[in-house]
Computed example of a mutant assay.
Amino acid sequence: MNIDTNSLYAQMQSMSLGNSSLQGASFEKMGNNLAMGDSAIPALNKSTSNFGDMLKDAVNNVNDIQKESGAKKIAFEMGDRSVTLADTMVASAKAGIAFDATVQVRNKFVEAYKEIMNMPV
C-alpha cells in the first residue's frame, strides 16, 4: 500500500483545524523529510493544549465521581437517612464504570504509543 506522505499530512492538518482544504499551505518533499513553506498553517500546539485540557477535565470528572461515591458510602455507613442504599450502589457503579473506561483509554494510549515507537523511520 503506497501512501503519499504529503497528502496524508495535509489531510491530518485539515482535519485538526476543521477545514475541508488547506489554504495557503505549501509542502516540499525532500527525500523522506517534509519541509513546510512560510505559508504553512501554524498553531499545532493550540490543538494539543486543547486535547490536554480535555483529557485533564475528563480525569478530574472521574475523580469527582469517585469522591461523590465515597462520600455517599460514608454517609450511608454513618446512618444518614437522606442517603439510601440504592443511591450508594448507583454512585458506586458509576464510579466503577468511569474508572474502567479511564483505564481502557489509558491502555489504548499506551498501545498507540508503543506502536508508533516501533514504526520504522
Rank of each mutant, 00 (worst) to 15 (best):
G18D: 06
M78T: 09
L44H: 07
S7W: 01
A25W: 09
Y113W: 14
Q104C: 14
G37K: 00
A91W: 04
S26C: 02
A93C: 13
A25T: 07
T5S: 00
T88M: 14
V103T: 12
N61D: 09
Q23H: 08
L55T: 14
K108F: 15
N6T: 05
V105G: 06
A10R: 07
A40N: 08
F99I: 10
A10D: 08
N6P: 03
I41M: 06
S69E: 02
I74M: 11
M119L: 13
S14G: 02
S69G: 06
F109I: 15
V105K: 12
K114G: 09
S14Q: 09
S21P: 06
N118K: 07
L55S: 15
M15W: 09
A58S: 13
K29G: 05
R81Q: 08
F109H: 11
N118Y: 01
S69T: 01
L44S: 12
R81I: 12
A91H: 04
M12I: 12
G31E: 04
M54S: 15
E28F: 10
R81H: 10
L55D: 14
V105S: 13
Y113H: 13
A101K: 13
G52Q: 12
I74K: 11
I65L: 02
M119C: 10
D80G: 05
V105A: 15
V105H: 11
R106A: 13
G24W: 05
S69K: 02
T88D: 03
M119T: 01
A101C: 10
D57M: 04
S47A: 11
N63T: 10
K114Q: 07
D38Q: 06
M54T: 15
D87N: 02
N45K: 10
V62Y: 06
T84H: 00
G31T: 00
A25P: 01
N2V: 08
N2W: 05
M15Y: 08
S49M: 14
F27K: 04
S7V: 07
V121D: 03
K56M: 10
L34P: 03
F27E: 05
A93K: 09
E111P: 05
S39C: 02
M36F: 11
N33L: 02
A40E: 07
S14M: 07
I41G: 00
G70L: 05
V59S: 08
T84Q: 00
D4E: 02
N45P: 07
N50R: 11
